[in-house]
Simulated scan of single mutants.
Amino acid sequence: MKHIVALTGISAISATGEDTNLHNSLANHNLSFDEDLDAWVGKLPKEIQFKIEKIREENRNYQALDPSVLYAMHVSRNAVAQAGWSFESKFGINIGSSRGATQLFETYYNTFLKEGKTETLASPTTTLGNISSWVAQDLQNNGPDISHSITCSTALHSLLNGVAWLQSGMCDKFLVGGSEAALTPFTIAQMRAMKTYSRAGQEASYPCRAFDLDKTENTMVLGEGAASVCLELGKKENALAYITGIGYATEKLKHAVSISAEATCFQKSMKMALEDAFVTGDSVGISSVREMAGTVDAIVMHAPGTLLGDSSEFKAIHALFGEDLPLLTTNKWKVGHTFGASGLLSFDLAVKMLQSQQYEQVPFISPQAKHKEIKNILVNAVGFGGNAVSILLRKA
């Protein structure tokens, strides 16, 4: 990277609550069994849902918005306030989602099936660009606003885009994020059709066994949530952490939702992030990569809780890092897989680990040897299409 990028504000909501210290309930997940959906899910706590509804009541135009938009508004307000940015300024905004206005779209479509027509606001409130544009309206921002969907790596692709705008000099501040509110019968049915969803009974201790390499079936659980991050170029006194390397890659697929056995996309994206942080010039060999990899103290894995997803990412890490692995962790066993928002919820976990110097142990995995200090953390995400992103974070 030409210049390091400072993280000056961050806000996240998930099944754990709002900006929760994830270490407080180490042995407990925040997933619940939903009788209506007949499935384990990661729902936002009632106190967060109350705050979201208060936003809806502020403005009559907000009453027609999908929860995914309101989630993004909530975390964006908090992140911008923490960073000390003026709401009426010209920072860039890029907030993405895998599914977008899922709840609203299904509601409108069900009405169409029954009545043969739909409501006036059906189109403008279900377009994907709806998220960033409404956040921009809410913050009265005059900079560029962009929305996109790159499946489950969407939020980290938003971060990539924000970093690119900053490095180009086209903006000096950028708000990036991801938001997902897809706890609907149709979405869960889609995951079950692929046979990836957890079949755990209501009494299961851990319905999602993300990063458990000994599991014998897929255990993915869907969650909802959102996160927004404020980025600024260069060193800042109020920096919470620094982005020092970025990596991305796409691999050739044999199937639309598959990933190779050793996740070559992750091997490429992690290697690129390390080179971006430490190397000037051409790509380097594996011995040099191993030397750079030794500076990484922890990796927050994508680890969706599926057999192939978890094992292939672990093999990719092992291929790049060798036997001397950094600390490995994930938060999906606790909050569920939040699709397009998941990468920045992992990013939020990494920031908290850097700040607290506490390691988030996955409770059903054998404890790993702890490093004396956590200085550098790699965050991974990947989505359908084999598109991987890896972000290297450094302690401020």
Rank of each mutant, 00 (worst) to 15 (best):
D214G: 03
L327D: 03
W40Q: 04
G281L: 04
G162K: 11
D36C: 09
F105M: 14
E88I: 05
E275V: 04
I374T: 14
G225F: 00
S149M: 00
G385C: 08
W165T: 00
S153N: 07
A81M: 13
Q267Y: 00
G223M: 07
M270V: 00
K372A: 06
M194G: 02
G42S: 09
A64V: 07
G281H: 03
V289G: 06
F321T: 07
A182V: 00
Y108W: 05
Y109G: 10
G245W: 02
W333K: 00
R60N: 08
S269V: 09
E224M: 11
K372C: 01
T196K: 06
A79Y: 12
I246H: 07
D34A: 15
G383W: 12
T219M: 13
G309C: 10
L65N: 05
H23K: 00
V382N: 06
T107V: 11
T127M: 15
G17L: 00
K173P: 01
D324T: 10
A27T: 12
L393V: 04
I188T: 01
T329I: 10
L44W: 09
N142F: 02
L139T: 07
I55G: 13
Y242I: 02
A388W: 01
A298D: 08
Q137D: 03
T219V: 11
S179I: 05
G201E: 10
Y109R: 15
M73D: 02
F384V: 01
A263H: 14
E323Q: 13
G294Y: 13
A200I: 06
D19Y: 06
